[in-house]
Amino acid sequence: MAGNEPAPPAIVCDAGPLIHLEEVGCVELLTDFPQVLVPSAVWDEVAKHRPSAFMHNTVRFQKVTPDKALSAELDVMSRLLALHRGEREALQVAQGHPGCLLLTDDTGARLAARNLGLEAHGTIGVLLRAIRRKQKTKDEVVKLLRSLPTASTLHVRPGLLENIIREVEQSP
């Protein structure tokens, strides 16, 4: 693990990153987060589409049910951005855990997170972070990035993906 960097925060997961990480065999990258909170709607969605995502004993999964009423801001944004139940619950749980990191690949959910003052990142961020956290080598991550279009259901514009790969290859 990295030297004097601050400890990783708890994370709250939307379904996308769990499914996409599992598709490329990388759910274990979540191992070094102290808590991996999975809202019940997200849990059900992942259990339905990619149940093997939860079969990683080293990841501290915790199924949670939002215990507070939806905030007025989140309620309005959920409607405006047509967020799904899982995305809404993930934002709701994240609001109840100050300092946590939300994992989502949905642009609408990320926009809502930004407006709510929540830090949010997605699958590609987790894959690249693996180099910094010394969980994967740069070559391994480049290989994973190249596999995304065929091995996963994460859709990224090919030109953008190539730019990301180039940036990773040129990074120190």
């Binding site: 990142h121 997605g122 590609i124 961020g125 987790v126 894959l127 690249l128 972070r129 693996a130 180099i131 910094r132 990224v156 953008l160 990301i164 940036e167 990773v168 990074s171």
Partner: peptide, 9 residues
Amino acid sequence: IQADVAWGL
């Protein structure tokens, strides 16, 4: 996604 790259790296 660019923000993801910056955070990741």
